[in-house]
Amino acid sequence: MPDRLLRFRRPAVTVPESGRSRHLDEPPLVRAALIGAALLFLGLFLVLPLVTVFVEAFAKGLGTYAAALSDPMARAAIRLTLVTAAIVVPVNLVFGVAAAWSVAKFDYRGRHLLTTLIDLPFSVSPVVSGLLFVLLFGANAALGRWLADHDLKVIFALPGIVLATAFVTAPFVARELIPLMRAQGSDEELAALTLGASGWQMFRRISLPKMKWGLLFGVVLCNARAMGEFGAVSVVSGHIRGETTTMPLHVEILYNEYQLAAAFAVASLLTLLAVVTLVVKAVVEWRTHE
């Protein structure tokens, strides 16, 4: 639908395409073969797993599905996942905007190093990310001992899960914003300043609206990862049922209890979240093209 709209509004785009010389187009057979190959690949690797989750989730009927999701353990896992995301996402939102601003709007020595540092958690294996916090807050570390003496729990409790999740998802907002900000440049901001706006006024009236779609997508991606993180959380969780198991960990537990349908039922919630993420992204892209 948006595709057709686009064409309708700008017929110029389609004309040269249909009027292209034969040299600039593949023969129909090659074209079909290429499309076929691409679709086959995507079908095998993307569509099939997606379908499998839902097929397996409903394999034992709606009753099992509903029971799996209303189980107290499942509800506790869903709650923990929501709480974690509700803490992590706003924090990383603020960090992401600040980080993108500091890297994209200024030039100075060490800017590339800083960009790499911002990206770093993205390349750290999730397992290692979890390990970091065990090394820092574990009962055998100095800090961990001090915390234990003061009866503060970090790992194997909510704070540890939040920290590990925040670490893993830290770069998402900044990654979306940096290229956007650099591409957009600072001319409007400079104009606003010349007209006498204060720094905050400029940021609120000019910069935020300019970056809002990129920001939204960054937040959505950050949220999806925060809710879905497995490796890092698995290391710091302690797997206490109904207390420190997030949804992905609950999926693993069910999977190991011969409750395959229930495991896939919880997985299907996470998959729905992924689908919503994709829809938001499509809307964002469409709005930016407008």
Binding site: V134, F137, G138, A139, N140, G144, A148, K153, I155, F156, G238, H239, I240
Partner: peptide
Amino acid sequence: RSVIDGLE
């Protein structure tokens, strides 16, 4: 290992 690391 978790207990050693502080799982209560």
